[in-house]
Design a protein around this nucleic acid. Structure first.
Lengths: 146, 146
DNA sequence: CCTTGTTGGTTGCAAAAGCAACTACTATCA
DNA sequence: TGATAGTAGTTGCTTTTGCAACCAACAAGG
């Protein structure tokens, strides 16, 4: 039998932590707005960084374009998001938040902030900073610079 | 517009990191043994902690019992795992690794170790320890003591 | 213009996850 | 006993994913 313990295996540990820390929050956007996780992420990108195309969201969020396509579809149906034609390129469409979407975003960002604070309530300032830094480095693992 | 950045939002960051760090390894057990993630996890528990029932694996891994049930089914088909009857309780069955399963486990643990080391190659000893500790605390978030 | 290649986005289908209901067995307590 | 409740594990069905093929629009070179 090996000395290797799953509790030190990063992919496993990250998954467990991700699942555990997501549940509370995902329950909220699910209950309040019937949104899926990809929908929340798309909504977030529009709310936080302004109008943009689906492709741009894909670059920032690293979500696959089919997921984004379906999420946008759902958000448009819910009247959270509208598609705007782009004059110069008729393939593309700029996505923009509608008032309902903006309100949902405002609400959820507040919740997210609070949730984030709760999660790290027991961490020291130094721990928080180092944790965030390590996670960002891991999330960028093997990303070749463009 | 808010000052809240997704790059400091723990559930998001953890998900990104988890996905990124999992890909390389999952590709290996997928390619070499046609295994799914839940199957690898079940195999791991048996290899690392010895024979046990599906329910016990569920307690340790926090995987849902239907996922475990199907994973066990697949592992039995692959002849990686066998079911043993339990005399005292005919509902339960002890799961045990067969030689093929043992070999796969041995192989994959080696890969996992190396992968884990690679992931943290750029981290200092202190960073590693703190990261693991923080993740374990997050993974246990809101777990009530039994 | 017309071919060839690329990009933005969608669709269809097969694999996988999630949830509830189910079978079979055990435990408790009257 | 025998009715009730609880546990081990499985099955069926619906919702989500993941992948590949696809359409429509642009771009570049001849």
């Amino acid at each position: 039998m090996s000395d290797f313990d799953l509790r030190n295996f990063l992919p496993y540990l990250l998954n467990q932590a991700a699942e555990k820390t997501s549940i509370g929050f995902s329950q909220i956007y699910k209950d309040r707005y019937r949104m899926l996780r990809t929908e929340w992420r798309v909504l977030f990108h529009l709310g936080r960084y302004g109008d943009m195309t689906a492709t741009r969201i894909g670059q920032l969020s690293k979500l696959h374009k089919t997921k984004i396509s379906r999420a946008v579809h759902a958000l448009v149906e819910k009247k959270f998001v509208a598609r705007l034609e782009v004059a110069e390129d008729r393939r593309a469409e700029i996505l923009t938040l509608l008032p309902r979407g903006q309100r949902a975003f405002d609400d959820l960002v507040g919740v997210a902030k609070q949730h984030n604070a709760d999660l790290m309530a027991n961490f020291s300032v130094g721990e928080k900073a180092l944790l965030i830094d390590c996670l960002q480095r891991l999330a960028a693992f093997e990303d070749l610079p463009d």
